[in-house]
Each structure stands twice: as structure tokens, then as C-alpha cells.
């Protein structure tokens, strides 16, 4: 018999509580199971990393697959904790392998950026960067490695990031300020011939000469483009793929 009146509310409340208890117990069981499974997976992954450390370091495709596996399991190989004494399994496993690899690569990328900023204004084509870094390298790296190394530097701020241009090519941007839409458009347009002119911008983007000239002048002033005055009309070249 259903109680009536105010008591009905109490009853409802206690029933809800019971459901909640059962639900919580079930959930806790599930979570525990999941956790133990995940822990097992992580342990296996750690063993795997230990066993194949050398291969992970030397073979780009192997490394990519490994990184993908880590991502699926929700493990960030670059993020290891040193909070607990002696570090986690991950710190011991990865400090020698993956971490050192990516941080080492990140340092080389930053050095390259610093070296070339004067001549390229802080924009490097990823293809160019890759071929430079692989010059004479015993263990070549892949483009994915560069992307991951750059991502590992994210906590330091937006000074270094990878940008996809409209035509599918990718550049590493290491200027303190973000590129605006017009500048990105100009860099994309440079991919076709290596340079742009105000008429080219007018034909392809519908910019009038004033707007084109303004954007180009600004980019030359900040070193993103090189100006060639020995032709008519003046050409504006992107150094990203050259330096």
C-alpha cells in the first residue's frame, strides 16, 4: 500500500537513497575493474617501452605507432610525474627514452628557429625543417615527431606553434605574435610561385592594390617576406622554404 500524505515524500527519498547506494556500488566495482585493467595495460606498455626503447628511439614509424598506442590508453608519454619519490614507472621508463628523445628534439628545433629567425622572420616550412634536422642524421625523424616535440613545448606559451596553410602545406611559426588571416593568406599564396605581387593578390583574393601593399609592407617590415625590387612589379618572396 502506498503511503499517502507527507510520508510519501520520505518514502520516495529513502528509495532513491537505496537506488543510489546500489548504483554507487556497481559503479565503484566497474571503475575498480577498469582501473586495474588500465593499470595492467600501462604496465604492459611500460614493459614494452623498456624492451623496445632502442627501436622506439631509432625508428620513426615504430615511434609513431607507439605514440598512437599511448594516446589510445590515455597515457601521455611526455607527461611524467616526479612528485612521488623516485618518480613513477613512467618517469623511469620514459626519462631515458621517449622524454629525452622529444625534449632533445625540441631543443634542436628551438636552436634551428633561433639560427634562422634573422633570415626567415620566424616562419619555417616543416618540410625544410625536417630535411635540415635529418641532414646527416643516423636515426631520421618524421614530421609527426616534430609536431609532438613542438606540442611538448606548449606549456611555455604560444611562441612556437605549427600552422596549416590553406593549400595543405605546414609551417612552424616562431614569432611572438600570431599571424593574422591576411598574413596566412599571403604565405599560402607564396607557395605557388615562391613569391607574390600586388596584382597576384588582386587577381586571386580580390584585394585592391592598397590593401595588398599594406599587408605586404607590414610583412616585409617584420621579416616574414623578402622584397625583390629588381623586377616590375615588385616581388615579395617567402623565405620559409629557403632558410
Amino acid at each position: 500500500m502506498r503511503p499517502l500524505g507527507l510520508a510519501a515524500f520520505d518514502n520516495e527519498r529513502s528509495r532513491k537513497k537505496q537506488y543510489q547506494l546500489v548504483g554507487d556500488a556497481l559503479l565503484a566495482g566497474n571503475i575498480e575493474q577498469m582501473n586495474s585493467q588500465l593499470a595492467k595495460f600501462k604496465q604492459l606498455l611500460a614493459n614494452f617501452a623498456l624492451e623496445h626503447g632502442r627501436q622506439i628511439r631509432s625508428e620513426p614509424s615504430f615511434r609513431n605507432e607507439f605514440a598512437r598506442m599511448c594516446a589510445v590508453l590515455g597515457v601521455d608519454p611526455l607527461n611524467y610525474s616526479t612528485k612521488n619519490d623516485g618518480g613513477s614507472v613512467w618517469s623511469t621508463v620514459f626519462a631515458k627514452d621517449i622524454n629525452d628523445f622529444y625534449f632533445g628534439l625540441a631543443v634542436r628545433i628551438i636552436e634551428k628557429c633561433r639560427e634562422t629567425r634573422g633570415s626567415n622572420g620566424g616562419i619555417i616550412a616543416l618540410d625544410k625543417l625536417l630535411s635540415d634536422l635529418n641532414k646527416g642524421a643516423e636515426n631520421p625523424i618524421s614530421q609527426d615527431d616534430i609536431v609532438r616535440a613542438v606540442e611538448s613545448l606548449k606549456p611555455f606559451g604560444p611562441g612556437l606553434h605549427i600552422e596549416n596553410l590553406h593549400n595543405g602545406s605546414t609551417v612552424l611559426v616562431n614569432v611572438p605574435k600570431e599571424l593574422n588571416r591576411d598574413q596566412t593568406n599571403v604565405l599560402s599564396a607564396c607557395e605557388a610561385l615562391g613569391y607574390v605581387t600586388t596584382p597576384i593578390l588582386a587577381d586571386n583574393m580580390g584585394w585592391d592594390a592598397g590593401r595588398g601593399q599594406y599587408v605586404l609592407d607590414e610583412m616585409v617590415a617584420s621579416g616574414l617576406l623578402w622584397i625583390d625590387k629588381q623586377v616590375q612589379p615588385t616581388q615579395y618572396w617567402s623565405p620559409a622554404a629557403v632558410m
Binding site: R117, G118, S119, G121, Y195, V220, A221, S222, G223, W226, I227, D228, K229, Q230, V231, Q235, Y236, W237, P239, V242, M243
Partner: peptide
């Protein structure tokens, strides 16, 4: 080097940093 085939390498660049890099090249 490749920069010798880069046409604007033969025009003085306006940006100071770029010009410095150009001179040393």
C-alpha cells in the same frame, strides 16, 4: 648556398634582423 638562387637576396632587405642575416650570408 641555396640563398644565392633566391632573387630577393640581391635586394637590400628593410628589416634590420633580416639585413644582418643577409650580410653575413
Amino acid at each position: 648556398p641555396a640563398i644565392y638562387e633566391f632573387p630577393p637576396f640581391f635586394t637590400k632587405q628593410i628589416n634590420e634582423q633580416t639585413w644582418a642575416a643577409q650580410k653575413s650570408n
